[in-house]
Amino acid sequence: MSNKINDELNKIKIPKELHERSKRGVRKAKLENQKRRIKNPVIAVAMVGVLMFGASSISPAFASTLQSIPIIGSIFGTVGDIGLKEADKSGLSQITNETFSVGESSFMIREAIYDGSRLSLGFIITNYSNELPFKKAAYKIDEMNFYGGASSQGEFINDKDYAGIISFIVPNELKRDSFNFSISFDEFNGKKGNWNLNIPVTKIEGESFLVMDEATSKDYKIKMKKVTFTSATTEINFDLTEPINAEELNQIIRFRLYDDQGNVVKELSAGGGGCSDCENIDGKITLDTSVQYEPLKHIPDYLIIEPYISSTSENIAELRMEIPLKESE
């Protein structure tokens, strides 16, 4: 059953009008998607009081079902990665409680966290039928079609109810401090229909540093632009020039990150978009790329980025860079 979540998310629709360059630019980090049952019922507590906040928008049947659902604290605190857990612990998650019901099954977007790049939504599905509704959904940021990459993780709360998180990477051209994220479903739990959820989103605060360093190898070039620290992530933003057929050649690169003490900073997700004035120059394309890593408790004096070939884990020594953190934006 765990592979089904990943399969469903990989089928999320990308608008037909999306330019081919942007399709090439969209990259999804293949994070480990987990779907497991909560193993320690002693530490599980009912979310009745918390979930009933804003209960006027919740159907009576769903409200009744929620009373029997045990979950540990918030969804982010239960099944989120380290960044989401830290942001939730700091009280930065936004309660949404957007929901709809179809027969005996209901779907709720419980909470949201947006760090300026990654938008994460905590959701609950009651009477889960082993088919996530996301693959046939359409997404918008305000009035603009959304096409970022997505990943998820989750847990069964009991035999039939599921709590999970779906995270989207917001393309740089759609990033803003606040927006309305809308999701439209035309199928849920095997039934056709039209259900719409609207989620107001506000970016959590962070500190950004402008970076001008760059490095070049035979096939690649990295031009650093910005490093941003929030309670949820550490984000590196840069222009990546690579062969236009890098994916076909199995030469996609990824990026290890270390702090100034040599500690590994774990990657959480990544995404990129095309650059209209530098597409297909001498057989190469430049992608406006952002990579998100776990949050750091303290801002270091510098970071070290170490690019490597994803398929072989081979380092590209010429691209290794020490990124100084001096000029705050």
Rank of each mutant, 00 (worst) to 15 (best):
D159S: 08
F185H: 02
E98H: 09
K30T: 11
L84H: 07
A87Y: 05
T241H: 01
Y258P: 00
T78E: 11
F255A: 03
I82D: 10
F100V: 02
G262S: 10
N180C: 04
L9D: 07
T233S: 15
N10M: 14
L66S: 07
P307W: 04
K191H: 07
S57P: 01
E187S: 05
E187F: 01
K39F: 08
R36E: 11
D259P: 05
V79M: 00
D239W: 10
N196F: 00
L240Y: 07
L268R: 15
D301V: 07
N194M: 00
K85I: 13
G49Q: 14
G154R: 13
N127V: 06
N180S: 10
P41E: 14
R37Q: 10
A215G: 03
D161Y: 08
S290E: 11
Q292H: 10
K85V: 09
N145H: 12
I199N: 03
K140W: 09
T126P: 03
S56D: 14
V42T: 08
I165G: 05
Q153K: 13
M47N: 15
K175G: 03
K4W: 09
N180G: 04
I304Q: 12
T241G: 01
R254D: 11
M144V: 13
S64V: 08
L66H: 12
F179S: 01
I157T: 15
I222A: 01
V50G: 00
Y258T: 11
T202I: 09
L257N: 10
S74M: 00
G206D: 09
P41Q: 11
M52R: 14
A150E: 10
A87L: 07
N245Y: 07
E104T: 11
Y139E: 05
K28D: 08
F181A: 03
T202E: 14
I12H: 02
A61V: 09
E306Q: 15
K135F: 12
K13M: 09
E143L: 06
C278S: 12
V227K: 06
R256A: 14
D142K: 04
